[in-house]
């Protein structure tokens, strides 16, 4: 893998693809993440709220994006990490996380990379779009 300090603007991060999301995924994430909002696990509640079915926690896909970052750099290099949740992730969706270097900047003696990151489904529809700032040195 290319050393992080050699990455130029436009370079892509190693992408990751996660297994498709099923009800068990959501049940496990409900418990593990402390997000017990029934809209993600209780279809009766979801239907009363006007949804056709339960749907994935946004923070599940954000955790996947975090894994893409920590597979690539030590977590201590991450300075900021943010996303906008653009579309609901549904049962059966298979999330792929991608990223690329947008900008290289110097701040307080550190070289930082500003990254554009996204989580998209198997059809290429972006679910989460965001950014991260990681330190190179």
């Amino acid at each position: 893998m290319t050393a992080i300090e050699d990455l130029d603007v436009g370079s892509a991060l190693p992408a990751i693809t996660k297994p498709s999301i099923n009800r068990t995924t959501l049940a496990l994430f409900c418990g593990a993440s402390n997000d017990h909002n029934p809209i993600h696990v209780d279809i009766d509640f979801a239907r009363r709220a006007g949804m056709e079915d339960v749907f994935a926690h946004g923070m599940l896909s954000m955790a996947y994006l975090g894994q893409m970052l920590t597979n690539w750099v030590p977590q201590s290099a991450i300075r900021r990490f943010g996303v906008r949740f653009g579309a609901i992730t549904h049962l059966g969706d298979e999330i792929t996380c991608t990223g690329k270097v947008l900008e290289k900047l110097e701040e307080a003696g550190e070289t930082l990379l500003k990254l554009e990151i996204a989580a998209a489904d198997q059809y290429g529809e972006a679910k989460l779009i965001g950014h991260a700032i990681v330190a190179v040195s």
Binding site: I39, F85, I88
Partner: peptide, 10 residues
């Protein structure tokens, strides 16, 4: 709770 969605997180 049935009407809220997460819009952004940083």
């Amino acid at each position: 709770l049935g009407r809220i969605l997460h819009a952004e997180e940083e």
